[in-house]
């Protein structure tokens, strides 16, 4: 492949993307942590009345300030 043959010309361009990738990874990790915490909080709450299939999770989104 021509691009690979010329890797010496462009590899350093990837260095400009490193901060973006690092922040994206941090965001992804933070999102997973929040999801886990939310799941744990749900598990600690007593079961709701029948009919709640998990669709009504919106109100607690801002409840952990």
């Amino acid at each position: 492949m021509t691009p690979l043959a010329h890797v010496g010309h462009w590899y350093h361009s990837l260095l400009y993307a490193v901060p973006i990738v690092l922040i994206a990874l941090a965001l992804w990790w933070s999102g997973r942590r929040d999801d886990r915490r939310r799941d744990a909080e749900r598990g600690a709450v007593p079961p709701q009345a029948p009919g709640g299939s998990g669709a009504g999770e919106d109100p607690e989104a801002g409840g952990r300030a």
């Binding site: 010309h9 462009w10 400009y16 993307a17 973006i20 990738v21 965001l27 999102g31």
Partner: peptide, 21 residues
């Protein structure tokens, strides 16, 4: 969320992963 993350990484990375401008 993963869709947004993927787009967020890919868009600038594709632009950046090319020789000098």
């Amino acid at each position: 969320m993963r869709k947004i993350a993927a787009a967020a990484v890919v868009t600038p990375a594709v632009v950046a992963a090319v020789p000098d401008a």
